[in-house]
Design a protein around this nucleic acid. Structure first.
Length: 385
RNA sequence: GUGUAAGAUAUA
């Protein structure tokens, strides 16, 4: 029934799209109609499952009735536009909120600020961060988290430092997400010293690192070639009863693959299974790349078969990785066959795939193949880079 | 009762 659907299944995310459709239709036809908050539960759950366009579509159907969306509904809608990289439409929604006489709140602004950051519009994000006060909305720890992360990803660590200082000056204590974002940013820059010292600082401030914090540090250590230190952190997290998840394992497995230590990578993959942590397409891709890079394309192909047998769908990264491996092993014919299989499998090639093919055929002087590919690319909507 | 932030993989 509708009641348990909203109260339990939407919360846990255990529902199918058909069910969502069914219940939405039911709700919209009921009379009297359920309150808007019930619609919000459904839309919020769909948004969490990343069905952004469906939420947008449902919203449009919702406003055709005389039901009035509230600030929750609008914030969910804005979030969906932002996640579709349509922050512009998010602002259109903001206009609608104001015209309806509703007051946007900090969640509304935080969502828009994140949308701007995702599109690299940091100047605008900063302007909105400053402008939200005019609507009586004060930046909170989440606002700072969003901006700090945005600047980290843009590589402006100096701005990050400013914001970090600024938030403390305003009496907002950095939480574990804030520390984790900055640690991640430092790791991306290769500044492991700073990352490590922030890690120590957070512990010192009684802010507990969580599984994400550990993954960031471990990834940073792996990428800077310090596998021993990475393993130490891995043990430390286990000692602190933080159970490694598929990302923690994949991070380390990737590190060992890049270090050329396939044995250790394989043994971690096995340990992961033993501990009941399910691999995913990501983790298979990492191992496949490890085999390819270490001159074991055949084993990589075997793993590709295994992942399918285990019920995991290869994605465009899987195929592109294998294509790279096959070309560098000189198996041009096999690469061509695999590209064919990929298409039969319903996996859309992207620009990276085409670059890989072009590069491969170029290496082997297959001029006609290159021309054929360029024509194919022209027929897609892909922008050559 | 409902909305907002952080971690792992492919080409050059």
């Amino acid at each position: 029934p509708l009641r348990t659907f909203l109260k339990e299944r939407c919360k846990s995310g255990k529902f199918t799209l058909d069910e969502a459709n069914f219940f939405f239709n039911e709700m919209i036809c009921m009379s009297p109609r359920p309150p808007i908050s019930s619609f919000n539960v459904l839309l919020g759950a769909l948004c969490k499952k990343k069905h952004y366009n469906l939420v947008i579509f449902f919203f449009e159907r919702l406003v055709l009735t005389e039901l009035l969306p509230d600030i929750f509904t609008f914030s969910i809608l804005i979030n969906c536009f932002c996640n579709e990289n349509r922050v512009c439409d998010g602002f259109v929604v903001l206009g609608r909120i104001l015209r309806m006489g509703l007051m946007p709140d900090s969640v509304t602004f935080n969502t828009l600020i994140r949308g701007l950051c995702m599109e690299g519009k940091l100047t605008e994000a900063t302007a909105l961060f400053k402008g939200m006060a005019a609507f009586d909305c004060m930046p909170d720890v989440i606002t700072y988290g969003i901006l700090i992360d945005g600047h980290c990803k843009a590589g402006s660590l100096d701005k990050v430092k400013e914001l970090f200082f600024d938030m403390k000056a305003r009496g907002i204590s950095p939480n574990y997400v804030i520390y984790t974002c900055i640690i991640h940013g430092c790791c991306c820059e290769g500044n492991l010293e700073e990352a490590t010292s922030l890690f120590a600082e957070m512990v010192d401030q009684d802010v507990q690192p969580n599984i994400v914090t550990y993954s960031c540090i471990i990834d940073g250590l792996c990428k800077s070639g310090s596998m021993n230190k990475a393993m130490e952190m891995f043990s430390e997290m286990k000692r602190r009863n933080i159970n490694p998840d598929v990302i923690s394992y994949s991070t380390l497995i990737d590190g060992f693959c890049r270090a050329g230590n396939l044995e250790e990578a394989k043994s971690l993959f096995a340990e992961m299974g033993d501990r009941g942590v399910r691999p995913n397409t990501f983790s298979y891709n990492i191992l496949i790349r490890g085999y390819c890079q270490n001159g074991k394309v055949d084993e990589a192909m075997t793993l590709y078969g295994e992942m399918m047998a285990e019920g995991f769908r290869p994605d465009v990264v899987t195929y592109t990785t294998l294509l790279t491996g096959l070309f560098s092993a000189g198996k041009v014919g096999d690469a061509q066959k695999l590209f064919h299989v990929m298409q039969l499998d319903g996996c859309e090639a992207n620009i990276v795939t085409y670059n890989t093919l072009l590069h491969g055929y170029f290496e082997y002087n297959e001029k006609s193949k290159i021309i054929e590919l360029l024509c194919k690319i022209a027929k897609t909507n892909l922008a050559p880079d």
